[in-house]
Design a protein around this nucleic acid. Structure first.
Lengths: 203, 203
DNA sequence: AGCATTCCATACCGAGTGGTACATAGTGAT
DNA sequence: ATCACTATGTACCACTCGGTATGGAATGCT
């Protein structure tokens, strides 16, 4: 049991690729959130049966967390790389453009999996919400830190509150993902980003 | 059947107040969204049994739409009244402050019922999502119109795109409601609004 | 070949879902 | 008092939920 990349093959070999299956599961969770994704839809998308899923991934919650890992590694990586931009404005630009591209593309589900899963939670699945919120907090902290550096480097005026500005940026980010999920057109979201960047203080 | 305020009382009189019951239902939908709210929790909160609910409100979907009407009338009215503010900046200020107060108060559930219900929708409840999205679109149109007037009146610089600015404002609005729902502190949201208004173009 | 081990498929579990049939109870009109 | 009418409470429906027991199939080791 427990999916791993070990090479010892005693017993009947597994007939599916756990990574491919996880990628399929990710798309289902992304579309419907944690509670909205049923085991039936998950197994069908993954092309495996329920016992195989449970043997390999544990249970629904463990599967979700592994999917969330994959999501952050593959789809949310643009946030971390954006922090390398030379100015605060360019950081904001890259993050927002990256969000529009990721959440409004037509090859992947619309919207942000984190937002979907944290908003769509009945009380009983609150551990999922806490998981998502905790991960988002760490991203937020990184942006705050980056903007404080930007202030020291003169990218941002002295009077701006780095933490508040970072939270404002991420608020727009989450708003964009909501709009994307309920079917906003990409050009409208691009216009929102244009407008927000026009308002952006400093360079 | 069908709840109404008619005065003819042939047959056994109803033992509950439909308006009170609807208000209780609203709080449940607000907390959990359409699909997250179970009939069991609804009936318990409303203090009535399922047959009474179905006789008076039709079914779950009809009950939700009536709750949504009540929500918009009682809780989202600040958006329409905000449009009467003298300047575009004051319109934005009132809308954002109203949102923080409404979605981050401790007497009502956290977050925006519309966002929760439109984001947390499995494919089968898509009619609910469309309903919510359509209502939001009409609000958005009103804000766009108000900002175009503001441009004509000189509140906003000539180079700003009224529609994009309105969408940007509502993007922040939805971002705020997401943050409120997952437990952001009110002072942080106030700081976001402060920052956004500092960036606001024109008067 | 025989064995231990692992995976797959079917069929099932108890609990919860939205929704309803039915008998009973309370009302106004006749 | 009887009737038509409506609300209520119980008990139930078919269905789906996440999760699992079980038997057989496929492998490596001895």
């Amino acid at each position: 049991m427990e999916c791993s990349a070990s090479t010892k093959t005693r017993g009947r070999p597994r007939e599916f690729d756990p990574e491919e299956a996880l990628a399929s599961a990710l798309r289902v969770f992304w579309k419907h959130g944690y509670e909205g994704a049923s085991m039936a839809e998950l197994t069908e998308a993954m092309g495996i049966t329920k016992p195989s899923l449970y043997a390999c991934f544990g249970n629904k919650e463990a599967l979700f967390k592994k999917a969330l890992d994959l999501y952050e590694r593959d789809k949310l990586c643009y946030i971390k790389t954006s922090l390398d931009a030379p100015t605060a404005r360019e950081v904001a630009n890259r993050i927002l453009r990256g969000a529009v591209k990721t959440h409004c593309g037509d090859s992947d589900p619309q919207g942000c999996m984190g937002v979907i899963s944290s908003v769509a939670c009945t009380t009983e699945a609150e551990s999922i919400r806490k998981e998502v919120v905790a991960r988002r907090a760490s991203s937020e902290a990184a942006v705050v830190e980056r903007f404080e550096r930007a202030k020291a480097e003169g990218d941002l005026p002295e009077n701006v509150d780095a933490k508040a500005l970072a939270q404002c940026l991420l608020t727009v980010l989450q708003g964009l993902s909501v709009k994307a999920q309920v079917g906003a057109e990409r050009k409208d979201l691009d216009a929102v980003v244009d407008t927000f960047l026009t308002m952006w203080p400093g360079r």
